[in-house]
Amino acid sequence: MKRDETDILIAGGGLAGLTAAAALGTAGFHVTLVDPTPQVTHADDAGADLRTTAFLQPAQQFLEAAGLWTALAPHAAPLQVMRIVDAAVEPHVMRDFDAKDISDKPFGWNLPNWLLRREIVARLETLPNVDFRPEVGFDRMVARTKNAIVTLSDATQVTAKLVIGADGRNSAVRQAQGIRTQTLRYGQKALTFAVTHTSPHNNISTEIHRSGGPFTLVPLPDHEGKPCSAVVWMESGAEVQRLANLPQGALENAANERSAWTYGPLNLVSKRMVWPIISQVADRLTAPRTALVAEAAHVMPPVGAQGLNMSLRDLDCLLELAKAQPGDLGSAAMLNAYARKRHPDIMLRVAGIDALNRASIAGNPMVQNMRARGIEALYGITPIRRSLMQLGLGAG
């Protein structure tokens, strides 16, 4: 059987896989990207991903190097202030973490996922060294001394020096390499949708805590001349399913009450989507000729905008190692270096987000009071506040 040859095969055409292909292709590597699903690049297409993603400062720099940011910037809503509100105590505790305390740039920028897909796919079409194959998936692979032979779902084969598993929390690449995961389940789900409101968001991302998980309003560009935000509403699985099935007016009433009327009346302007909340970490990040990235390697609750930003740190690490020694692509030395660099950061951030999420779930009044006092204490000590903001951006 004739085999195509490539430097890098990426399995998974989600945001992480698409961005990996753009970054590695821009760096000059020959890349084959496969994904078993059709690419959806418009908001009204069936199966469109209506969630949003907040890119923090280091992620924006990575996107710029990949040739993506110029196209994305006009659609991005800046995140200047991260506001935390504990509405479980009286009076409510509210503290603003302002990016100007540590930087002359916003913390990050928020973009709709369907639009990200559209612009990244458009970028891939300009790169002759990137072969993107939607509706073709990873089937199996055999790792050899100098390369790997990958068999795809259409029965074709590709020889690659490095295989990147960017194919999600149920990664076929990870399973093919016999890598297990450690999974924590919280009994939570997230309901996501977009709303317009009467008061401007002023580029403030607002995270409101009571119990069951945070209710987060993330700035979006105006919709039909009205201020607009993305909502991520975390609650128990049963409660999220109930909310997802409410008539529009009833959901809006519930969202207004849960948001403490932060921006005035909220009006639903998108479809609703439901996502399970887990923490999951792969036992290993590598196998012969294979590196795991993004949700194939780690999954976290959507707290603190860490998810995709951690994924881009994985990609940045792989890219720097690949550029440093292109002749060593996919070798044991390169993969061992990747695991050494990424594993401590992944474990630190997964543990931190797990602790924050457990605190946000708490329904016990004593725990809620401790949570509120903790917010006040951390905010009140300037060096600690600044250190936490830097850590959230990816420093340290």
Rank of each mutant, 00 (worst) to 15 (best):
S360H: 15
Q280W: 07
G327R: 06
T41S: 11
D49P: 01
R210D: 13
K189N: 15
S331Q: 00
Q61M: 14
E119T: 10
A48L: 02
A190W: 07
R342C: 14
A48D: 12
I353W: 00
L33N: 05
R340A: 13
E207N: 01
V158E: 04
K105H: 04
L72H: 09
N336A: 13
L162Y: 04
H201N: 10
V85M: 11
A337E: 11
T145Q: 10
D7M: 11
G380V: 15
A250F: 09
A324F: 00
L393C: 00
G212M: 04
M1V: 11
R385V: 08
F29L: 01
G394F: 03
R289M: 10
N267R: 11
L15M: 02
T216L: 09
A339S: 03
Q157H: 05
L268S: 12
E90T: 12
I10T: 01
A20S: 13
V232D: 10
A166H: 05
R169M: 08
Q39C: 14
T19I: 10
V293E: 01
I204K: 08
S360E: 14
T53Y: 11
P288I: 13
D44N: 12
K226P: 14
L348P: 05
A337Y: 15
G25R: 07
K100R: 14
S311C: 06
M141Q: 14
